[in-house]
Design a protein around this nucleic acid. Structure first.
Length: 375
DNA sequence: TTGAATT
């Protein structure tokens, strides 16, 4: 029955259930079969399980099952179950096939934000053995921050491998520069291994490091997806019915905006800046690779994220807002950050909101710079 | 008066 699918599975790196990127015949088949399908620019991905001899991927646990049960990550958000089935069905008979979606947002679950269309799948599709689910392997995923920027994935694994068998590891990097963000993930085979790693490594300095790292259990990847998608729901009414600030902003001419944002001596123009945003290592205030980061100062102690969404949303695409709080009191430390996708919308927001009176406070709004309070 | 980071 499932002979050919087993053959495909055997092409996967054996000896480990760890997720390994694989681009082989399946991807070629997918391009052939799906290139006429709809395309989109959605970021993301999502895991699905494909099995040819096990009715439910979440039950059972034999080694045999594990070799015919696959998990597929980095699928495009608009992929249908039929397309997935068609894709793998061209290789062998499929017993069952399931797209796993977020209960609230219906977004495909899984890891990775990987822009792509159906024809770009070879850039991001990942096919791995699905490990049999059980209590002992659940919640074995760790989030690690404060890593030295020079630490490699291999070194990260070396550091954690003393506590158990590592299933996957990752270090997040800046999309533009490729430099480590000092944040990573380690998934252990078993939860008890992860617990031991927390005990042993949290607040410890890795060899040669000057700062201690933070090690804790990772959030579920779907949580952020839900957050981002839901926040867009809040944004859209404002964009359809712009408030007074947005209307005011639209009166500004584009050629004035840079002067307002950068000062009259700026030699940049919007076109020039758009032209260089793809280059690495260029020092443009506020530009972080994924958007334009805006610094908002003089927020009240009880300010929260929603006020930032409300203020900036009407000006355009806002991908992230953050109120910086004191760890102990949870009160706002007086400032926050907003990330906007498009330069011109960010510039209008800054021009309009800088000096804006919020309650009894006058806000200062600008592109974020690299100031630090030390030295 | 310029963080945290969640694939």
């Amino acid at each position: 029955m499932a002979v050919r699918l087993c053959d495909v599975a055997s092409l996967l790196r054996s000896g480990s259930w760890a997720a390994e990127p694989w681009t082989g015949q399946v991807i070629a088949a997918m391009e052939t079969q799906l290139s006429n399908g709809p395309t989109c620019n959605n970021t993301s991905n999502g895991p699905s399980t494909i099995s040819n001899n096990c009715s439910s991927p979440v039950e059972s646990g034999s080694i045999e099952d594990s070799k015919t049960n696959l998990i597929v990550n980095y699928l495009p958000q608009n992929m249908t179950q039929e397309e997935l089935k068609s894709l793998f069905g061209s290789i062998g008979e499929i017993e069952s096939c399931k797209l796993v979606r977020d209960k609230i947002t219906a977004a495909l679950l899984g890891h990775g934000a990987s822009p792509g269309t159906l024809t770009d799948l070879h850039l991001s599709l990942q096919v791995s053995y699905a490990r049999p689910s059980s209590a002992s392997i659940r919640d074995a995923n760790l989030y690690v921050s404060g890593l030295p920027k020079t630490m490699t994935q291999k070194e990260l694994e070396q550091l954690f491998s003393q506590y158990g068998r590592i299933i996957t590891s990752r270090i997040l990097v800046d999309q533009v520069t490729g430099v480590s963000r000092g944040v990573g993930f380690i998934r252990f085979d078993r939860r008890i291994e992860a617990e031991e790693a927390i005990k042993g490594l949290n607040c410890q300095k890795p060899p040669g490091a000057t700062e201690p790292i933070t090690v804790k259990f990772a959030n579920n990847p779907s949580q952020k997806t839900s957050q981002a998608l839901l926040s867009q729901l809040y944004q859209s009414p404002n964009r359809r019915y712009p408030g007074p600030l947005a209307q005011q902003a639209q009166r500004f001419r584009l050629d004035n905006l840079l002067n307002m944002a950068y000062g009259v001596k700026s030699r940049f123009s919007p076109m020039a800046i758009d032209g260089v945003t793809s280059l690495a290592g260029i020092n443009i205030p506020g530009h972080a690779g994924t958007g334009w980061c805006i610094f908002v100062y003089n927020l009240a102690p009880d300010a929260d994220e929603s006020i930032l969404w409300q203020m900036f949303g009407p000006f355009g695409a806002v991908t992230n807002v953050k109120v910086i709080r004191d760890f102990n009191t949870s009160k706002c430390k007086g400032f926050g950050f907003v990330t906007m996708t498009n330069y011109d919308e960010a510039a209008v927001a800054i021009a309009s909101l800088n000096g804006y009176r919020l309650g009894d406070r006058v806000l200062q709004v600008s592109f974020k710079t690299n100031k630090t309070h030390k030295a």
